[in-house]
Amino acid sequence: MTRGQRLSAWLLLAALAAPLALAGEIPRDQRRSGADFMAPETRAMQADDTANPAMLWVLEGDALWREPAGAAGQSCADCHGDTAESMRGVAARHPAFDEASGRPIDLQGRINQCRAERQSAEPFPPEDDRLLALTAYVARQSLGLPADPPDDPRLVPFQENGRHLFERRIGQLNLSCADCHDDHWGGRLGGAPIPQAHPTGYPLYRLEWQTLGSLQRRLRNCMTGVRAETPSFGAPDFVDLELYLMRRAEGLPLEAPGVRP
């Protein structure tokens, strides 16, 4: 083999290997909301508060916020007052570290925890319309603020577990989240565009669901899609994954409650 032949063999190998190389985490300047991948009609629906069906839940959440609940007979508003001030930015900082459990807790979990401990009321079951309504109402107060996961060193091991879950191949199709959402975003899976999987619009209204749903519901959908076993709602792994996704989306503006096809 001459030197020239050897060089071209190397070039060929390099060219073959290039598409196989993992793209890795998406650089900050290339991060795009899932809304960017939608049809203009769906984007318009999300942007217009009078056409966004998720606003029905925000309205409901506004009413629930003021309604006394549980044995304590207290409403959310009794402690937290005006959401526009007290809840601004809260969704952008969740999941956050919860002292009581020594683990991260997501926004829904926080609302249910407050409900159980402060209001002495029965916590809402997963995907309950009232829980989604309150979460959407609180998340709405952070509209447009950048995702800002807390820099808490205690969260690091959980975030790393989230990253591990994101990169681990699962299910009969043997795919990881990263296989699609890091390496092939912008491409298509069947007829549907593959977004970057940023959690900035949750809880959101999926036209397919015909209702509002949480990020965990969406994650379970994806897991079912690759024919993997799904953890149950509220599983610690889900919260870790949410934590990693939020870190991965750092800097993107929150758009909850969003609309997706």
């Binding site: 009078t50 056409a51 069906p53 606003m55 029905l56 839940w57 409901e60 015909q210 209702t211």
Partner: peptide, 9 residues
């Protein structure tokens, strides 16, 4: 005029 109602249909 726009009108939306919450209903499972």
């Amino acid at each position: 005029i726009k009108a939306m109602v919450a209903h499972p249909m």
